[in-house]
Amino acid sequence: MRKRPDIARITVIIPTYNMAALLAEAVESVLANSFSDVELMIADDGSTDNTFSTIRQIRARLDNDRRSKFHYLKIRHQGKSVAINRVLSRARGDFITILDADDKLPVHSLRTRYERATETGAELVLGGFSTFDGHRILGYRSLTPNKNRERLIKELLFNIKSPFHQNSMLVSKALMERVGFYDENLLRAQDKDYAIRLLREANTVEIIDKPVYLYRRYERGYTNRLRNRLRTIYYKWKVIDKHTSGCRRIMGLAWGSLVEVGKMGYEFFSIYKN
């Protein structure tokens, strides 16, 4: 039985909010990937900039096959989790991944993850990531191939440096259907929460020790960084509370606070390095 032409092997979801200036780069990085059997879904969380016209211009120059797999949905501004969930329920790819609107994919990102998943039968594939400033690569975060999932979960909750970027995941649709949607009560740290739920539910996890994601770093002012970090601490507490219990929860909340303070200093004075 032939696969319908509007159904792809991979669905890439790009949540966006007033990111028109960078969104085109993210979309182009998907279109330029060496793996082309892709459904691309833009989840617009109520943008008030020229996001729609940017998407319309890109879509207009696509051929019929790619245009049939290029979707745009705009909703009322309710947060990233809500935006992702609205298109996640419509995704038709065999595998699904998320790309933030200000980030990019390396040219072989999708092929590398898809081939590993199909060769091994893995429901969840994780990869390393590089950071860039828009012009050059700043650093690379590797992912140790022999780490077990409980260790990864612990590091997601309590380490200053996350063991992997949550958007470096490639997730089978079957796994996502079992895990369900993003937690819409989390305005931050929702990707960390979702990664933990996927790790706990996945039958098989594969790790790729090479960069499959490009994460953009900004030079923000200290006041802005401090405000964002304080907001993150609150939602990080909620994630720790959700995934721990008893004495471990109490200790985790205290340690999580110290970690976020440490991360604040790390962000001010360092970059992601090997």
Rank of each mutant, 00 (worst) to 15 (best):
A91C: 08
D6R: 04
S34L: 03
G79K: 08
L170E: 00
F132W: 15
G93E: 00
Y266D: 15
L124G: 06
L214T: 07
L226D: 00
R86I: 10
N167W: 01
T48E: 09
A83P: 04
D45A: 13
A189L: 00
T51G: 01
T118P: 00
I207L: 05
V171R: 05
S257N: 12
D100G: 07
I55W: 14
E219K: 13
Y218E: 13
L73F: 12
G180I: 01
S81L: 01
L73T: 14
Y215W: 15
K74R: 03
R200A: 09
H71G: 02
A91E: 08
R149F: 06
R76V: 12
T97Q: 10
G180R: 05
A20N: 02
Q166H: 09
T112S: 12
R248Q: 12
Q57E: 14
V107W: 03
A195N: 04
G246V: 00
F164Q: 06
Y72H: 10
V87K: 11
Q78Y: 07
Y222C: 06
I207R: 08
R59K: 13
T131D: 07
G180F: 05
P163D: 02
I10M: 10
L198Q: 03
V179S: 06
R56A: 11
K104T: 06
N18F: 08
R220C: 10
L170R: 01
R149N: 14
F181Q: 08
Y218C: 10
S81N: 05
R217S: 15
A202T: 03
V87L: 11
L253H: 07
I75C: 04
K80H: 14
L230V: 12
A43T: 01
F181D: 07
T131K: 10
I7R: 13
A117P: 03
Y194I: 04
E206F: 00
L110P: 03
N159G: 13
N33I: 04
Y72A: 03
H243F: 03
I96C: 03
A195I: 02
